[in-house]
Nucleic acid binder design. Sequence first.
RNA 1: GCGAGAGUGGUGGAAUGGUAGACACGCUAGAUUUAGGAUCUAGUGCCUUCGGGCGUGCGGGUUCAAAUCCCGCCUCUCGCACCA
Length: 810
Amino acid sequence: MSETRQRKTYNPTDLERRWQERWAESGLYKTDEDESKPKHYALTMLPYPSGDLHVGHWYAMTPSDTRARFMRMNGFRVFFPIGFDAFGLPAENAAINRGIHPYTWTMSNIENMRGQLRQMGAMFDLDAEVVTCDPEYYRWNQWFFLKFFEKGLAYREEAPVDWCPKDNTTLAREQVVGPDRRCERCGTPVIKKNLAQWLFKITDYAEELLDFSKIDWPERVETLQRNWIGRSEGAEILFEIEGYGPIEVFTTRPDTLFGATFFVMSPEHPAVDEITTPDRADEVRAYVEKAGRMSEIDRTDVTREKTGVFTGAYAINPANGERIPVYIADYVLMGYGTGAIMAVPGQDERDWEFAEKYGLPIIRTVQPPEDFDGKWYLGDGPAINSGFLDGLNVDEAKERMISWLQENGFGRRAVTYRLRDWLISRQRYWGTPIPIIYCDECGIVPVPEEDLPVLLPEDAEFMPTGESPLKRDPDFYNTTCPNCGGPATRETDTMDTFMDSSWYQYRYLSPHYDEGPFDPERGEKWLPVDQYTGGIEHAVMHLMYTRFFTKVMRDLGLVEFDEPMTRLFNQGIILGPDGNRMSKSRGNVVNPQDYVDRYGSDALRSFLMFVGPWSEGGPWDSKGIEGVSRFLRRALSLVTEGDSSGGDADPSELTRRTNRLVKKITEDLEAFRFNTAIAALMEHTNYLLAIRGRVDDEEWQGAMRTFVMVLSPFAPHHAEEMWAAMGEEYSVHEQAWPGYEEALIQAQEITLIVQVNGKLRDRIEVPADISEEAAKELAVSSARVRPHLEGKELRKSIYVPGRLVNLVVG
RNA sequence: GCGAGAGUGGUGGAAUGGUAGACACGCUAGAUUUAGGAUCUAGUGCCUUCGGGCGUGCGGGUUCAAAUCCCGCCUCUCGCACCA
């Protein structure tokens, strides 16, 4: 067969379609339930059904698929499902903008994406699919809500909450991002609104969420979660306000109590009105109002000069009985600690600035070093001006003060977290209805479990008014109280869609099970997830919520483990050809379909794995995919062209390189190093092409079998084609992963590097087992080396076996 | 401001104490072709008096040997940011 003919017959998309059909017919990717094998639950974050798989989906999914295939060949029974995160705003916005019902829009997108997933040729078990907007699914969201409610983990509270004016809904604290507090979805700055909302008590699990000892997750995710949870140790201290009563503060520096020279409350503190003296009332009220009107962005601007007003009230410092003035200032936040602080200007930057501006006394309670010439001092040192603490260093003084506070009833040891409870109410249509009924007689009444699911009505109005669309649907809104039978109304808010993704990994196991969120028998067989992969952007949202869910599920007796996913790998982001994030406005969006049509799925997936380390992401390069496509075509040509009737090539070299390849691919796949694995496959292909027809048939066939097997996780269609062309039995994907022998990797001859004073001077081919003496002898006698030794004394020589000789002269 | 990560050819990247630049893109030359494309072969860090010299953001250090370890600095990216 000529080169020309081969080239014309290379049609990757035909080849791939053929194998996809065969795989589907033979049920090749039906989940292996053979319990004699160890389990491996591989999971990639489920996509939002936006309409088309974009190249980012390919980047996330196909390396995961490669790894799942590798595990399968390594003797694991592998569960690798996929589904759709189908609730959410884009569907509702499509309804508003184009008059298509969210359900119709979502389902047609899903249908389209199913086809694209099949074209991807991944080993997803499509029978296990989950679609979160299906009542069969969201019924269990509601069920979980009821369980959380029973346990006191779901509660309703009226409070100022973050509101996105564009998306017309409230957001969880995690979904407000950046220093200017923008909506995580659409980038609009959020505002505060006072609304009654449902929250989940994730803060009850703050301490446990800080424990990462049972999971093998990237350090980076752990750090992000740890910072987000923001644990601070210290004390809560009661300050008596004259004529009012005690108000509590939180401090991490109880040791500095003697230096507390004033007291500051947040403008939102509930006691502000009561403590303010009549002569100060107007000024205080004006300040509180101004703070309330101020945008979050201005309010939290660190560079802004501190402002505040005196309330006329005085607090008593419990340590020394001093009367200290009480101020209101917006640098104290109601959302952290108790919303009130003791101000210690000597040891705190913010308090110093405030004291300087308002002429308040500053007392140092920690002795700074002699050369210290700054203002506030944060370092360690002996306590001063602090009565019974004097002379103790900061840590000792903290402990001593906490004991003193506890003995005298002024306070106690305390831990505070930055983490807030998870606000789950959304004022939108396309989500899970919250299963709650409000009755004038009985109050808040949960929908009885047997009445689930509370179905999302089909014919709502989708106008984004800022009120839940369900409120304007009387058939939904008006109901009867399950308790007393009287007239009642339904909760009209829907749930945050992060609720859906908090437990979807469990639903995959038995998507149609109707006696619980998942079939416990299936859970026994497969849980928890062994390897999860996805982007870092969900570190403090999805990944924290799903950990929280699993811990609650454990406490509900649904599971016996503590963590949902044992191992996690974060892939990077595939960028546009210009190195920027892909976006329609930049016009740098790459459509994977164009490349699948032209080069095939194997080329696209292999290119995405080849472009760089998976964790790093990287720019798209449409020339780069051509290189990968060439490689696949050349690999395929190894079996479709030429003959292999023996010859002059060294068969032991073929054996050595084949063993080396298996080792390299095995180690790289274990560590998610897809890029270097493909480089090794390319190198090996180039070598095989160079010796094709020059080794004995038997050796060639054996080496080819191994090569195709290790190629198969990367380019499953091409490998299958090659496997068949070699006359092997279907399917290459059911083969056991080849082993390798370390001894066979060692070469007989090595290149010995000769250095003089660390500089490369010669390379000599020597037997691998050369003795140190012989190696050094060869080194000093090399013609290239000798000039560099002349007239100098050989002081020392270093021999690294199998690698180099370094001659040190001077 | 605090925390984390990164800086290597024209480009993506490889090498985690021992041959810097694997593999690939691009480029150059040649073969093939009416031509273009595709394919194949060879070359390709920079400088060079062809001996060699220089070279992994910058400056120092450790070591026989440093992209790699240590110290200081610069730049970029990401996260958090008045959290008491």
